[in-house]
Design a binder for these strands. Sequence first.
DNA 1: AGCGTGACCATGT
DNA 2: TACATGGCCACGC
Length: 112
Amino acid sequence: MSAKSPEDRILAAIRAIPHGQVAGYGEVAHRAGLPGRARLTARILSQNDDPALPWHRVLRSDGRIAFPEGSKAFREQSQRLRAEGVKVEGGRVKRPRKADDLDAALWGPGPR
DNA sequence: AGCGTGACCATGT
DNA sequence: TACATGGCCACGC
């Protein structure tokens, strides 16, 4: 059967991140069935060459962009995130907490 | 085999 | 929130 390599799993986990949402490196690794391999995720992304991979949805665990502020990649990532409705301020991503998310679900873009 | 480096993380202060 | 420390794992020299 398909004995997938860790790389394939991580890539799949990243592709599984919904539009407008973000995830941490460790979180991605965990979802890929590789707990504790956050650095592996980072390395995969640095080596990836798939333009269809939503790498911009992957951030550090504290919601910060993993690039130095002002760098090219940094601007690229923040811009893409904003294009998906994610707020980015000071190199940090305002990620909706559960409570805020619930609020948004009730009063925000949802039905009614 | 040892050492340094890296798109990291959890914990403590 | 910011900084320091220890841990993790893969790669190159």
